[in-house]
Each structure stands twice: as structure tokens, then as C-alpha cells.
Design a protein around this nucleic acid. Sequence first.
RNA 1: GCGGAUGUAGCUCAGUUGGCAGAGCACCUGGUUGUGGUCCAGGUGGUUGUGGGUUCGAUCCCCAUCAUUCGCCCCA
Length: 418
Amino acid sequence: MTKFSTIKGFADLFEPDSTVFSMLEQTALRVFGSYGYKELRVPILEYTDLFCRSIGTETDVVQKEMFTFPDRKGRMLTMRPEATAGIMRAYIEGGCPNREGVSKLFSYGPMFRYERPQKGRMRQFHQLDCECLGAHEPQADAEVIFMLMRFLQEAGLEGLRLELNTLGCRECRPAYRESLTRYLEGLDTDKLCENCRRRMATNPLRVLDCKEPGCKALTENAPTIGESVCEPCREHFGSVKSLLDAENVPYELNSRLVRGLDYYMRTTFEVISSSIGAQGSVAGGGRYDGLVSQLGGPDMPGIGFACGMERLALMLQEKEQPVQRPDFYIACQAPEAPATAVRLAQRLRESGLAGELSFAAKSLKSQMRLASKNAARFCLLLGETELQEHSVTIKNMDTSEQVSVAFDALPAWAQSVS
RNA sequence: GCGGAUGUAGCUCAGUUGGCAGAGCACCUGGUUGUGGUCCAGGUGGUUGUGGGUUCGAUCCCCAUCAUUCGCCCCA
């Protein structure tokens, strides 16, 4: 028999990793909820076109990272590589633009990208996603960033850096793009890496984001978009910055923060950790005012972010997680004891306690060991004597004190120890 | 798609100029006929990732392949 294994880049999540994930989800529900965000659950499969139209056909994500396949009728489907597109589709399809001024939507779940796995990067990974739709005001930008930073803090994460940039808008970006292209063409383009020479034609802004030392040096004095944005964009960005300043949210301006998805404009931001390997970006987002109309909806502005749960988990794993102690463990010492124990355990759980029992009457020693290993507070012994007397012997595992408690008195005992 | 590292017990890893496959942890049993954590004694557990090659003989050397992992690219 050949053994099955997970698909490359897909992972099983056992304790305690799974607990870290549910803790993050609970924290997200609580924090995002306090800002008025409502949870939205969307499918993980969408028509391929949705992602091409939103993310952009020239991006790496669309060109080489999507899990795409035809269904039984030949329609092209894609396992979502990010959440925003699906949420926008649902937002439009659900008629939200017509009945709400501002929609605040929050979602989380698995995403899929066909990339080479490495630390902090899986083919199936998980993101927390927030989208604020219908507000073009800089206050919305600031609130989204406040909320993200607040969430990260509540989740217990430290040592993070917030980077901020503006990408201009439909009005001013084409002009900047052109002047950047002119600048790049004036350089010794042979010294640029192969990728960047291609990017010059497809997406010149990404040349600025290149990590190759040669490209970095060559483009050091390139015009920045911050200098070239139009007056409304400049004002918008200024307001966002002063709102962050007023709340003492520290950030660094990074004029090269371009981001990989085409729909971003104006404010973009990224939260980076330096402690989890090469893939240090834990959250990223920005404004995408043209996206809703691009997908066939009305002209609604939007801003949001995605937060990578695996990367947060990597940071949290370095910290000790508190252990949950079960209240009881029932050790069985007579062949007929487990049948009674399973029912006694039910009564105890009804009384609000948590615990387990031994399904079989094995050696008492091994059962006590198990109780001890599970860090149970009390070990209940059920043997011949106890069955005859309709009672259990209860041992406090911390003090080693023992008492005898009648079956009927167990709810009262449970009360006394809870 | 490209580059490096690593595959030996459930886990973490030793090992041999090529000669019977090891330790710690975990697990089980006993020391204690019904009492855990410490201690002591014993025990279960391996086609040395897979397939070839060299050799009297390969876990070790060579080739291929698969997997894992770190990095590049890119992204959360």
C-alpha cells in the first residue's frame, strides 16, 4: 500500500498550531467587530476571469501562480489567490452598493497560489481580509490602518514595522508612469536585471520595487511618485499621514512600496516583520477606488488589507502558549467500570467541567500517568469497591488529597471545584 | 521557473577510511496484588526516502528520481 501524503505546499495543522489560528480568528472577530465590520463568507472557487480582471493580467499572481482548471462543462475556474476579488463580486452581486452607504466586510480563510514553498509561504495559506467600501475620505484609510495595527497588538505581536506610500490615482499615475519610463530609458538599461527590462514595458513602477542590488543602485535617483502626484492625491495622503501622527501610529514612508496587484491606488501600506525569515511581509493593503466599477459595479471607492495568518503564527510560535487544564480524568479499574464512567463524565460535563475518561480498564498506573500527562486537576478512580458503593474516589492531582464522593453528589462536587 | 542544504525508530539526531543499525525523548511492562509527576530495571519499534550502479559486501562511494527545507523571483 502506498501511503498518502499532503500535496506539496499544503499542510495539516495539529495542536498547538491549530489553536494559534483559532485564537487569531477570535481576536479578529472581536477587534474588527468593534469597528463595525460584519463577517462575510465567500466561496474559494470563482470564475478565472474575475481574478484576471481585478488583479491584472500582467501580474505574477495571474501569470504563473493560480490554480486554474476547467470544470466538467469546460468553464475555467480558479482557486482564489486572494480574497478581495471574491468579496467585491459578492458585494456587487448581493446588492450592497444600493442599500448601504459604507460597507465594512471582513472575511478569512484559505487562499491558493502555485509557488515554490518556503518559510512563511505555502500553496494553501490563510488570510484575514477587511474591506471598507463606499468611503473615499482619508479617515477611512486611517481607520483601516488603526484597526489593523490594533488587531496585531491584541493578537500579541510585537516588533512590526508599518510602511506607507501613495501610488497616485487615475489622473496622475499615467503621467508619472511616463516620466518614470523616460527616466528608465535614459539609464544604462543593460545593467538592469532581465525582469526589470521586461517590467519597463509592462509595469515600470515595479522596477522600483526590485530587490536586485544592481537595479536598486541604478534607480536610486529615479523620480518618486510622491513628488509627482496631483494635488487631490497629495492632500489625501497628507490627511492620512496627519491622522496617523495624531494617534501616534509610527510608520515609515517607502516611495518604492508598489505592491503586486494592479488595482491599488493612492494609499498603500505593508506591515513587515524582520523575525520570521525572508518572507517578512505579514499584512498588506491599500486603496482600490476603481475596482468595483471594473468588476461591473457602480463607481464605489474602497480600501482594505489582507493579513497572512501563517506568518503571524510563525511569530506567535516563538512565544509560550498558555495550556488549558482539563478538570478531570476518570480511571477505570474494573471491567464494567468504563460503562459507568462514560455516563459519569456526561454528568460532570453537564455541570460545566471538562475532562475525559479511560474507555478501557487498563493498568491503573498507566491511566494515572495519562491523567498526569494531560495535566488534569482531578483523577476519579472507579474500581470494584466504588461501583459497589456507588461512589468515586477523587484524587486532587496537585495536592494528592483523596476524597470519596457518591455518584449523586457529583454535581455538587463539580460546583465546588469549578 | 532557478540555486543551496537535508532524507537513518513516532519525534530530535548520531554513526561507519565501505563490515551485525545506535542514543535521547516518547510509548509499553515491571519494581508498588488499586495510585501519577522523580528514580531504577526491562521491552516494543527500522525494507537507513525510492530505483539503479560500483563492490565479496553499501546507511556510507557514484548516478537518477522523489520528498522535505532554506533562499532567489514574487507575495500575505
